[in-house]
Design a protein around this nucleic acid. Structure first.
Lengths: 194, 194
DNA sequence: ACCGTATGCAAGCACTCACTTGCATTGACC
DNA sequence: GGTCAATGCAAGTGAGTGCTTGCATACGGT
């Protein structure tokens, strides 16, 4: 059924840009090139369609994992962070909208955030492994390091186009600076990057 | 004129919760206990009223500065970060909504973000001063430290009620952990907090 | 006592919203 | 050729939208 996917894609696209209330069934039908009635026959209501569209969009998010065994921390983290930042940036409009809509539509939250928690768990595991291998020092909270790095990447990705001038200038520089700062806090001895 | 402030407050409150489209002139009038016609007589249009309401809300944000001369970095930063986090948290609903509405209503952006940039500048100055005084080491990017700390606080504050389980558990612990992590990255010698 | 300003009230305008109904058309499978 | 499910089209429902008009009422300054 090509119609179904077409409708879900159009809905996600409109929702990201216009929010729940702005995403009208008329606009969805027009963008999908489908009659408005078809939308109701296939999904029953606007609400079902929107929730399903957000669910699919979130499920599409690539699962990008850190290496099982850390070797070159900086290289691996920078590469991972760049990919992760790219993914977030692609979806920044949808993410901003969801953050605002969670209050009125809490049913969106579980489906949209499941990925984030898994990613945090993966990074925590990675740092734990690195510490076990002596690649980072025995002190410093790995949770704090993980949350701060992920928050920094997240914020930069979702505010970059909408609030230029509230962060670092270039994306690559920002990613590298965040990773370096994180590793400096976890370094086994001073001046690891000096 | 009590009516004016009443209307602005009601508007800001509704806008934070329901967004631009959800904030209807009927709801505003009802919440403010004012006739809907009065709203149009005083502000001309819904758009003027909304922009003005967001402007006032942002202007109300307390300006909370770091000490001119750094002495006890950790204590000063923790105290400042806790206050800053509190302010952000109070306005988290409005902030989330604005982040989503910036795309459709870019006129909101300048008025709403002016404070954030000043705050970042203040922290950068504070770190620069601290480095000059030898309270932090000569290496490590102060911009990265500033952006990461502010992003971490910002994210924690605006996602705390809407995405529990995506960060650290208690607010106070989170704030302290973020500051510690930041200082560890900037520390003049290893193990400053050991 | 008079006047201007601010507000309320009732009604209405043209428009959009989510959603429904009834009927015609298509196309695939038997 | 006949059946059935999927889709389109035209029209309409009741509710909500931003905004306007006309008129009544209050209150303060002169």
């Amino acid at each position: 059924m090509p119609t179904r996917k077409t409708l879900l894609d159009a809905t996600a696209q409109l929702f990201a840009k216009l929010g729940w209330r702005g995403t009208t069934t008329r606009r969805i039908a027009e963008l999908a090139g489908v009659n408005e009635v078809t939308l109701f026959r296939k999904f029953g209501s606007k609400e079902s369609l929107l929730v399903e569209a957000v669910r699919c969009q979130a499920a599409d998010a690539m699962q990008d994992q850190l290496p099982v065994r850390p070797t070159d921390l900086r290289a691996e983290l920078v590469a991972w962070a760049a990919r992760h930042h790219g993914q977030l940036h692609e979806r920044s409009s949808m993410i901003r909208t969801c953050l605002a809509e969670f209050e009125e539509h809490p049913e969106l939250a579980p489906v949209a955030t499941e990925g984030a928690e898994r990613t945090m768990g993966d990074m925590l595991r990675y740092f734990g492994e690195a510490r076990r291998l002596g690649l980072i020092g025995p002190e410093g909270s790995l949770e704090a390091a993980t949350v701060m790095l992920m928050n920094a990447l997240f914020m930069d990705a979702i505010t970059r186009d909408v609030l230029p001038g509230c962060g670092l200038v270039s994306t690559d520089e920002a990613v590298a600076a965040f990773v370096d700062h994180t590793l400096r806090a976890l370094a086994p001895h001073t001046g690891i990057h000096a």
